[in-house]
Design a protein around this nucleic acid. Structure first.
Lengths: 357, 357
DNA sequence: AGATTTTTCTATATCGATATAGTACGAGCC
DNA sequence: GGCTCGTACTATATCGATATAGAAAAATCT
């Protein structure tokens, strides 16, 4: 059976192929009457419409934009914060009639999505900046938008004020009287790093900013820190990190966590040890994800607006698409963060005891 | 500035275009030495690799498969059950080097993703079977796999035993002694439908199966039901549905809910009315999503294996891709469900009272 | 009526790659 | 020497559409 193409219909009707193309893609280019006949013939012959692949080649656009994620797409789907962000992106892109292609940064026997999949542009989201996948996207000269990444000249970006938020969180603990604070941040490795002194350059962007924010504020106040690098990807790592922090003799009186999810598991670890939150241990999260409110006690955290972040990123990308190759001034956006004080933080035990005396 | 294509490199090196193509795509077709020279020249001239669009046209494959969802992609991202399923799909597809394109069923000023986006095949997931988007996919003769959809001859599918699970849930309530049960199911409309007698044909597949399973078992036992159709898309609808059910004088002693999320909101509504769960009201969910365990009391529900569902769907699709147009016997798979009894169900108050006498 | 514009349709040249068949040449075999 | 065979590379014909420019007919203007 021969394939049905524009030509098939053109031949059947004795018109030019171009006319058939126009019937589908540019209705104003032919009379309504002829267009009807063309469409009728198309239906009869079982022609669905212009082949997207051929159209993509000729027009140069595909109607889909990519989102580059970490190696593990599967893991990203379990991340509620990422999903809120995606939701906003999807909303905005759907409005513009664009589809969303998820790209894994991983290479599987020769297949490299970032290099091989056709798309009109891409969002680079929260993935290892050294990833070869990012390089491919850059080399392809695709319109890009960086999200939660270190800025790069010439590429529009959306970030949140991670450092400012982290400082506010640290300051909050200082103000409460804490002078010995645990810091739990994500690392790329697979083993817990206790008492580490992380190289900022080895951390992912958001992690680095938050870590530096904490350090900056705590350092200024002369507080001590206990650093633990927690591998991403498994909740049990969070729990173990919590235990590693709380089992020790010089246990801190408060913990700053990279995320609300991590904070949740630390609270669990604390409660399993018979520690009361916030009386014996203050815990602060990051993101203000839905779990922050579900946790008992409710979680003090740093809020960021995922929805706005997604919407802005999608808008920047569609703008970049519209401008085509001509790159306007790349704007770097920074969204605000806000400390949200809830029930999981309180003065350290010693201070409380002193006050009660 | 001229674009850099295979021809550019071929000309620069004085070899044929085909040789350059082979250097990238079929290394065994030319000597290692020449290949090196070609690749070196390519890098120097800033050639990234074969254009995915052109390759897609000629080869006929794009390296991405679609997932067709409801009108609102954004909503799907907030659905934890859908995300678990996606996670498994993504895992499996990444393993095969395929990217995942999310398709909204909505049409936006002439753009219809299901018709216009190029892909090698698609999963049709939990969307209105009457949606034009599904028709487009069918007309394109793309390899498809139906998930949580009514079976269609010739199209492989993955379903879970919704009806069996629903029957088990209903039987559980009957066995506990309940004879008056609320049924909360999803509808496509935007208004709560209280005391409705829904047309099964108007319900989405999974909804229909669950509803019919409940009815079947409750009917056989001679129990009464109070039916409420709950619009999808907003948690407040769930809560209002709960209130509509519990505020009435002839309040049922138990509720069967379409999902765990819905059950969560119903429990909240009950508690707000001063009703104790399960002493005054038994509540059963569906899916066994993570929230079922987080809820207090923990939720009696019907478990399905999202991960297996996703993995199977992805596997069926890649198999269909491999077979190309030649459609093997389309298999319809049905995954089992399992009643998980937890704390949210108990005998109705009257029975308890009688037992205490 | 003649000039000008508009409408409607067609012819041709791409878009950037890959499949297929074929050529040239050296090696192996009897 | 003549035959087959394998390796390394090339020439040509697509894949299925759309942009562009142009031709013919119809409509508008002066």
């Amino acid at each position: 059976m021969g394939k049905v193409t524009l030509q098939t219909i053109a031949d059947a009707l004795g018109v030019s192929r171009m006319t058939v193309s126009n019937a589908f893609s540019r209705p104003d280019q032919l009379s309504a009457e002829l267009r009807e006949r063309v469409l009728a013939a198309a239906t009869e012959l079982g022609y669905v419409g212009p082949d997207p692949r051929a159209r993509a080649l000729k027009r140069g656009t595909t109607g889909a934009v990519g989102v580059l994620l970490t190696d593990s797409l599967a893991y990203a789907f379990t991340d509620e914060v990422a999903m809120r962000f995606f939701s906003a992106i999807a909303e905005e892109l759907t409005r513009r009639g664009l589809a969303l292609t998820l790209l894994s940064a991983a290479e599987t026997d020769g297949h490299v999505p970032a290099r091989d999949v056709s798309m009109d542009g891409a969002l680079v989201y929260s993935c290892d900046p050294k990833s070869p996948a990012v390089d491919w996207l850059l080399k392809r000269h695709l319109p890009l938008v960086y999200v939660d990444q270190t800025d790069r000249p010439g590429i529009p970006s959306v970030n949140v004020d991670d450092r400012g938020g982290a400082r506010a969180a640290a300051r909050h603990l200082i103000d409460l009287g804490h002078r010995r604070v645990g810091l739990l941040y994500s690392i790329l490795g697979s083993e817990l790093e206790v008492d580490a002194d992380p190289q900022p350059s080895a951390l992912a962007h958001a992690t680095r900013e938050r870590y530096l924010g904490w350090k900056q504020e705590l350092g200024a106040a002369g507080a001590e820190t206990v650093n633990i690098g927690v591998p991403i990807g498994g909740r049990d790592h969070h729990y173990r990190a919590g235990r590693a922090l709380l089992d020790r003799p010089d246990r801190p009186t408060a913990v700053l966590c990279f995320s609300d999810v991590m904070a949740t598991d630390v609270v669990r670890a604390a409660q399993d040890l018979g520690l009361r939150v916030p009386e014996d241990l203050s815990v602060v999260g990051f993101d203000d994800s839905p779990v922050a409110l579900q946790l008992r006690p409710t979680l003090t955290t740093v809020r960021q607006d995922f929805t706005e972040k997604g919407r802005l990123a999608a808008t920047l990308l569609t703008e970049a698409l519209a401008q085509g190759a001509a790159p306007a001034r790349a704007r770097h956006h920074m969204l605000p963060t806000e400390l949200v004080v809830r029930e999981s933080t309180a003065p350290p035990p010693s201070v409380t005891a002193a006050a009660e005396r």
